[in-house]
């Protein structure tokens, strides 16, 4: 589990920092960014196995667009969508675009770990991607 890389994308910087720190304490490789644009930049630089993506980040790119772009840049990356107040329609749209799962905020950390380990399991069964 240690060798998987996670990218946390959320405009609430406190939230991002907390999650990244808690994941690091579990010896997971995690990084945090504060916007969709920053997330795409990070994904152009490095390969991530899982992206935790807040789907509602006001002021920047629409979450669904970010998801679409992530799937284009790194189709093997598993995306777990996060949101505080999403509609069913957004969640369906997200799943249709290939999101791996969905988490409602406020998130429970053990639930997040469960979803992460399910995503890692899927990745392991498909084989690890290599850096381009």
């Amino acid at each position: 589990m240690e060798s998987f890389r996670i990218l946390v994308v959320d405009d609430e910087l406190d939230f991002t920092e907390t999650i990244v720190n808690r994941l690091k304490k579990r010896h997971l490789l995690a990084e945090g960014v504060g916007s969709g644009e920053a997330a795409l930049e990070a994904l152009r630089e490095a390969v991530f196995d899982v992206v935790l993506l807040d789907i509602k980040m006001p002021g920047g790119m629409d979450g669904i667009d970010v998801l679409r772009e992530i799937k284009r840049l790194q189709p093997e990356a598993e995306v777990i969508l996060l949101t505080g107040h999403a509609s069913i329609e957004t969640s369906i749209e997200g799943m249709k675009l290939g999101a791996f799962d969905y988490l409602l905020k406020p998130i429970r950390f053990d639930e997040l770990l469960d979803k992460l380990s399910a995503a890692f399991k899927k990745k392991a069964s498909l084989g690890r991607p290599s850096l381009p």
Binding site: A86, I88, S91, I92, M95, L104
Partner: peptide, 12 residues
């Protein structure tokens, strides 16, 4: 009786 959980479960 749509809920996000049900929708995500069905899609998964």
């Amino acid at each position: 009786y749509g809920s996000i959980e049900a929708a995500v479960a069905a899609m998964k």
